[in-house]
Design a protein around this nucleic acid. Structure first.
Lengths: 243, 243
DNA sequence: CGGAATGTTGATATGCCTCAACTAAAGTGG
DNA sequence: CCACTTTAGTTGAGGCATATCAACATTCCG
């Protein structure tokens, strides 16, 4: 299984320069690995976590629970992501984090991370950058959900998931894993299950993507990108692999 | 006019403890004040800013520009907010920042802030916390736009603006300034201008809020809160003033 | 004072939601 | 290993919330 240090370094180096001492600092962090089952929560709304999560494998999600009990998924996280970095500085969680499929995470004590940020500011800045990219992704989701019609909205979502999988190194050529049910996609994009189903079919009919058996098959990237009006700038990826 | 150091300290102290030396560090920052006219941009999508913005007075907004040319407003910012803190760590802006009405901002060089974060980590952590609360607000906007019907969505939005104005000290008793046109509200909540107009009226009919002449009048806070299913936890305000 | 931006109202169209039924696949226990 | 149950996906029909179009009222502002 993936090593935490390697996974974390890979991700941070995507956008930040780390000196020898910074790397050494990261390598000195204590952590332990935990396996998660599908739908299992790792942090819950209202919690005051003392550990930070680094995704090693599988997919995690953040979500809000509404008064009615329904979920709103906010973001999805794959290898290298730190889906609860905010827990480092905000007392209580305003959302929950769960596993989507089987997942492996590393847990690092907040104390150790904070102590390192003081000694090696560059590491703190790199993780900060990470949380800022997160925020950029949230902003894009606002725009996507508020101002694009169903088909474009879903196309955009698929584009993002694919590009991020590419960047994380978890994609196959022209495809990536997307272990979401249609119901979950609905709770992400704010559309009903029925509309999700029909929109998936509408996209399939464009011959640009296909979602089958938890795998997203990209059949015509330029067309999909056009359909979703997708511009990857907001992901702030430096060396975006050619698509 | 408001003093930058005072405004900034007030805001940071809402959630963070600052030692004497941290305060001294902030007081030593160089800055200059700039006046903005309504709709004037201070940072644009694609820019690489070298200065950070602190809002002293008036209201600023962040927004995306879509391919079609229409705007999607992402967030609104009042006294104490740092609406482009992300520019500190991300090369290029993925969105723009503009003034909504007449506004005053202080501009602080990135270099000075970054140097201070190294010397006084607590100041960096406080600003980081600030950006994390920002992200929490974005997440709530995702949920609001994706999963609430027009009336609840607008009620929730009004609740947020009022509570934040209270926290920033810019509110009057039972009212706050909200200098948005109905068109802008539509570009925030993802609804058409016509729907905004009718929804404003629908809310007025509930006798819980009234939006008139750029002022939000809270007439029945518990009812408005109920209508918008508003729970202020996500704003991470410590000493939330009683409402 | 005249023109532009903002707000208001009515009528019509439509995209998406809801309800409902059914199929297919996957997991479970005897 | 097969009956049984549950979950996931699919399809059709009807209704409603919201978009769109269009006209007019009002306020703002140069």
């Amino acid at each position: 299984m993936a090593d935490m240090y390697e996974t974390m370094l890979r991700k941070l180096r995507e956008h930040s320069f780390l000196a020898q001492e910074d790397v050494a600092g990261i390598m000195s962090l204590n952590s332990h690995v935990r396996e998660l089952r599908p739908d299992e929560d790792i942090v819950r709304q209202g919690d005051r976590p003392q550990l930070s999560v680094v995704v090693l494998g599988g997919m995690l999600a953040r979500y809000h629970t509404l008064a009615s009990g329904t979920r709103q998924y906010l973001s999805f996280h794959i290898a290298g992501d730190m889906p609860d970095a905010q827990g480092l500085f905000l007392e209580t969680m305003d959302h929950s984090v769960c596993a989507i499929d089987d997942a492996q995470v590393a847990l690092v004590p907040h104390k150790e991370l904070l102590a390192m940020f003081v000694v090696r500011p560059a590491v703190g800045f790199a993780v900060w950058r990470e949380t800022l990219i997160d925020a950029a992704i949230f902003r894009e989701a606002i725009t996507n959900n508020a101002s694009r019609a169903a088909r474009a909205r879903m196309a955009h979502f698929f584009c993002e998931q694919y590009v991020r999988a590419r960047a994380a190194g978890t994609a196959m050529p022209g495809a990536c894993r997307l272990p979401l049910s249609q119901a979950q996609i609905g709770q992400t994009l704010g559309m009903s299950l029925v509309t999700v189903n029909r929109t998936v079919q509408a996209l399939r009919a464009t011959d640009s993507v296909e979602l089958r058996e938890k795998t997203l098959q990209i059949k015509d990237w330029p067309r999909l990108q056009r359909l979703g009006q997708f511009d990857p700038d907001y992901l702030h990826l430096k060396g975006l692999p050619e698509l």
